[in-house]
Amino acid sequence: MSALEFLLAGTLAAALPLLLAALGEMVVEKTGLLNLGLEGMMALGAAIAFICVYHSGSHSFGFLAASLAGATLAMLFAFLVIFLKANEVASGLAVGVLGLGLSALFGKNYESLTISGLSEFGLPALSKIPVIGPALFTQDIVVWLAITGTMVLWYILNKTKLGLIIAAVGENVEAARAIGYPVGGIRCAAVAFGGGMCGLAGAYASTVYTPLWADGMIAGRGWIALALVVFGTWQTGRVAFGAVLFGVLSLGELTAQAIGVAIPSQVLSSLPYFVTILMLVAISRHRRHSS
């Protein structure tokens, strides 16, 4: 497998956990909240999914359980912030830490066990394209579902009344309440959705991308997803692009090491983060000029 094929084949899968978590958080932030617990919700989803798949052998069941676990943890955040009016930042961090702890607790006996991943299949016609076809268009089912889901989310947020309501709540809570929208309920739903997406992201990471559970395996991807939301300026397409870009960078690092580029691996590993910082600077500069 050439370096290019490796990149093409792996990018979408590497990007997927980031994409799911970032899209979920984007919806949360669109309603005007900020949940910093992504990392913990992903970790919990990853542990729960691994356990379920290990015992049942069913990936569908694992994904379902993971999304429920993520959503449940997110509801704790919603309860603290929306009903008890607790501080958002503190609550989000607390929920994140709780999620990490729970994942370690539940996953303790499952470390170093293995399960099978998901088989990949190629899209008809497209996967026959020479060079890029077999690599890029042969992916597992979750990737295809996630791409479709991203488009659906874009449509909902930009073309439907539900999307309008979400934007309205985020822009002006008082006004939304005044014209009679159940702001608390809408926010709760968004937070639950965000948690569910994080659960799915974790499930993909632990049962498909690398089918094993290890404590700390999310490895900061929750925080990167959080940054991606800002990076993507709260727009579905840009967030997805950011996730893919990050996928490329994290794989590029492996590729470069494999083909023996004479740069220390630590420098290569820091590349994605470095690029993120550069992009954020570029975006804010651009915004200042255009206004």
Partner: peptide, 16 residues
Amino acid sequence: FSLFETLNVVQNVSLM
């Protein structure tokens, strides 16, 4: 006013 500045007039109306 309880209007949403980043939306247009029809969108604001359609919210209610």
